[in-house]
């Protein structure tokens, strides 16, 4: 393929991915969150815009688009403005290696990298740079505290997440996500690797800064954490990055542990979406059920529980794989 065709393919793919993530993940995700929180707290949630409030986030987005972008006094303007791009971009990069389904022409994936799983770990670790930039650039103590907390938290939880990713790659004998899904034809890895699945889900919750690990944007102590000072469309872009990251984590969990697009009768893409939303529901369920950790509990939990457990799991898996290959 000539290089300019590749370039056009990449640009078109990026636009499709961006719209997809913006509509499916951010807009529908926010609506779902409000509906589920309403349901769990015995209220109705958004109800007036569109049928059953379906168009509520669309209206919110339009409102945010028209708002003024306020830059705080003596903020670091360059960093303040760049951080907005870094966070959604890093979230968007995660989607390159997630296979959404399969068609007659091969798996539906942006690019089946032969280092897919490590690539996912790498790009999801880029978000923290954007968060630190936002916290620093805002010239606001709450934002800075939120940014620093997030750096400590995400760096700690990347390790158990990486270890559980490696465990699955070890089982499948490949780092490519498509191969991993194909290796789950007989048995989903959630059955073979329940520990890795739980560790991944916990670490993913921490990586996307959701309750019970939402120290970064703890409303009662830090206003909105690192994006306290952002308004208008910039605020919306942070929301997009956050929900995009959450959907990417859920998509990766589906790919690695729930057999990806595999399932009987229904078309593959539909299976993927069903599993994705089931996991998203778990994330939201946890958010509206559990209270928040303290920062020391949070770091202790990662370093003293999750990392040893996932290391032991990795060693045990490696041993079993070695014995089976003999």
């Amino acid at each position: 393929m000539p290089w300019w065709l590749e370039l056009i393919r990449a640009i078109v793919g990026t636009i499709i991915l961006f719209t997809g993530v913006a509509v499916v993940a951010a807009m529908f995700g926010v609506l779902l969150e409000r509906k589920i929180s309403g349901w769990m707290q015995s209220r109705l949630g958004p109800k007036h815009v569109g049928p059953q409030g379906l168009l509520q986030t669309l209206a919110d987005t339009l409102k945010l688009l028209q708002k003024e972008n306020i830059v705080p006094h003596r903020a670091d303007r360059a960093i303040f403005a760049t951080a907005v791009i870094v966070v959604p971009l890093a979230a968007l990069l995660d989607y390159v290696v997630i296979p959404f389904g399969t068609t007659r022409w091969g798996p539906l994936i942006f690019r089946d990298l032969n280092v897919g799983v490590v690539y996912f770990a790498a790009t999801s670790s880029l978000v923290v740079v954007g968060i630190l930039m936002a916290g620093w650039g805002s010239n606001n103590k709450y934002a800075l505290l939120g940014g620093l907390r997030s750096a400590a938290q995400m760096v700690s939880y990347e390790i158990p997440m990486g270890l559980s990713l490696i465990t699955v790659a070890l089982m499948a004998g490949s780092l490519s996500t498509v191969t991993i899904v194909n290796a789950q034809a007989g048995l989903w890895y959630i059955v073979a690797q329940p520990v890795a699945f739980l560790v991944f889900l916990t670490a993913a919750t921490a990586e996307v800064n959701r309750v019970p690990f939402d120290l970064v944007e703890a409303e009662s102590e830090l206003v909105a954490g690192y994006f306290s000072e952002y308004s208008g469309m910039r605020f919306a872009l942070f929301q997009l990055g956050e929900y995009g990251e959450m959907f990417a984590m859920a998509g990766m969990a589906v790919t690695l542990f729930l057999g990806g697009w595999r399932g009987p009768v229904l078309p593959p893409v539909l299976w993927f979406v069903i599993k994705l939303y089931a996991l998203i529901f778990v994330f939201m369920w946890v958010r509206w059920t559990y209270p928040r950790f303290r920062i020391d509990q949070l770091l202790n939990f990662s370093w003293k529980v999750l990392i040893p457990v996932s290391l032991l799991n990795l060693v045990a898996t490696a041993f079993v794989v070695m014995v089976m290959h003999r």
């Binding site: 280092v115 490590v118 690539y119 770990a121 790498a122 790009t123 670790s125 880029l126 923290v128 740079v129 630190l132 620093w136 800075l144 620093l148 750096a151 400590a152 760096v155 990347e158």
Partner: peptide, 20 residues
């Protein structure tokens, strides 16, 4: 990928952290 994971994702964050 290891470059992104270690350098861009970890060392930069560490450096920013220490500056702050």
């Amino acid at each position: 990928v290891i470059q992104v994971l270690i350098y861009a994702g970890a060392i930069t964050v560490l450096i920013l952290f220490v500056i702050m």
